[in-house]
Design a protein around this nucleic acid. Sequence first.
DNA 1: GAGTGGTCTAGACCACACG
DNA 2: GTGTGGTCTAGACCACTCA
Lengths: 254, 254
Amino acid sequence: MGTTQLETVPEPKYWHLKTVLREALDADFAVGEILPNERDLAARFGVARATLRQALEQLELEGRLQRRRGVGTTVAPPRVGVDVSTTRGEWPGAAQDAWRPVDCDLTGVPAEVATLLETEVGEEVHTVRRIRISHGQSVAAERLYVPASSVPELSAIDAPSGPARARGVLRELQHLGLDGQDRAVELGSAGADDARELDRLPGAPVLVVTTRYVAGGRTAAVSVATYRADTCRLTFGASGDLEIGENPQERQAS
Amino acid sequence: MGTTQLETVPEPKYWHLKTVLREALDADFAVGEILPNERDLAARFGVARATLRQALEQLELEGRLQRRRGVGTTVAPPRVGVDVSTTRGEWPGAAQDAWRPVDCDLTGVPAEVATLLETEVGEEVHTVRRIRISHGQSVAAERLYVPASSVPELSAIDAPSGPARARGVLRELQHLGLDGQDRAVELGSAGADDARELDRLPGAPVLVVTTRYVAGGRTAAVSVATYRADTCRLTFGASGDLEIGENPQERQAS
DNA sequence: GAGTGGTCTAGACCACACG
DNA sequence: GTGTGGTCTAGACCACTCA
C-alpha cells in the first residue's frame, strides 16, 4: 500500500500555538487585557513553558503582545505610526521636531561611525543624545554625531554638557546649508543604554534608522536612531501618520 | 563591612557570550567561514546549548551570523543595501525595476488589506506575486494587490494566472495616472510561503514595507513587500545603494 | 549514515513589580 | 511575600544536508 503520507509536514508546536493564540487575541481579548501567566498557559495547551514562550516571543515581535517582568503579558495596542519622512532639507532640531534633547558630550569619533562621517580616527565629535516621544511613550533614542569641525562657531558659553549643550549644537547646525541626506533602515538589537531609555530589556529588537547629512560637499553629521520595533511602524511619504492601517506583518499560509 | 556590591548587576550569560563571540568574529573569522557546531561551542564556553543558542540567535538577528540546518553556522557578509526609495511617480513594474513577476491570481480581497484598499468586502483583487533578487539571492517577496476595478481594461487574452498574467496586470497599471504613494516599514515574521521564497525558516524576521498607490483620488493598489531582515538594509534617499556603510545596529554599553 | 541546526521537555533559580 | 516574566540547565528527539 502506498504510504501516501501526503504532506504531513509536522508543523512545530510553537507555530501552531502562535496561530491559535493569534486567533484568540483577535476574538476574545481587548487591547490592554492581561493574559493568563505563562505557566498556566503552558499547562492549558499541554506544552512545556519554553515552547509556549517561543510562541509568545514571536507574537511580541509582531507587535501583538507586550510582556513585562514582574507584571504579566498584555495585549498590545496597534503599532503607532511614526513619521520619519525626510522633511525637505531640514537639519535635526529644526522647528519643533518630535525630539527632546537629553545630553551631549565631546569625544573621539567612535569606530562605528568614523567611516560614515569620513573622519580621521581621533577627530573629535559632539554626540547629541535625544529621545523621541510619541503618544506619551518614548519610541526612539538617537545619537547625533557632529564633527567639531562642522560647528566651529559653537560658543564656549554654552554648558559643556547636558541638554543645554545639545541645544547649542543643534542651533549651530541650522546655520549650515544642507545639500541632502541619505537614509537607511535595518534591524538591530537594543544596547544596554538604548534599552533603558526605551523601557525595554537589552537585546530588544529595534529599527535602526541611519541618516547621513551632507553639507558643503561633505558629511556634516550622522544620526543613528533606534526605534522600538515592537510598538513602531515607520512611515514615509507625504501623508505621514495614520495613512497606512493595521499590522499586515503576518499572512499565515500553513 | 559595607557590602559594597557596587553595581554587580549579574549580566546574563548569553549577553556576555554575545559580546565575546562578536569580538571573536571581528578578530578571528573571515566572512563565510564556518563556526564550530553548537554543541562544541556550548561546551567550550561551559554553558548549556540553549544558552549558547540564545546568543547565536541575536547575532543572527544583527546580521552577523547565518545558520542553516544540516549545514552549520557561518559568518555572514555585511548586509546588502537595497534601494527602496520612492522613484518619482512610478508604478511597480515600470522599466526594469528589480522585481521578477512570479504569479498572479484573482480572488476576494483578503481581510488584512481590505481597509488599506478601501474596498468593500468581497470585491475582487488581482494578487501579483513578485520576487526581488539582489546580489544573486532573493531578498524580498511581494504581494501587490490591485482591485479589479483599477484595471478594467485588462485583457482576457492574457493567461488566467502565472507570470504572464502578472505582467499583464503590471502593464495595465502603467496606463493610470499616479497621484502619489504612502510607505511604511515595520518588523514582522515570515509566513510559511514567504519563508520558502526567501530561503528562510517560517517565523524568520522580515522588514515589511507597505506601499499604498493613490490614483484618481483613491487607493489604486497596495504592495506588501517582506525583506529578509538578516541580510538587508533598506536604503532611501537620492544616493541609494552603498552610500551608508557597515552595520551600526549595536552599540554595546555594558 | 554522520553531523548539523531546530524543536521540545521538565525542571530550577533569579530579577523585578506590586501590594 | 507573592507572583510575574527572564535566564539557565541537561538532557532528548527530529529534520535536514551532504558525502
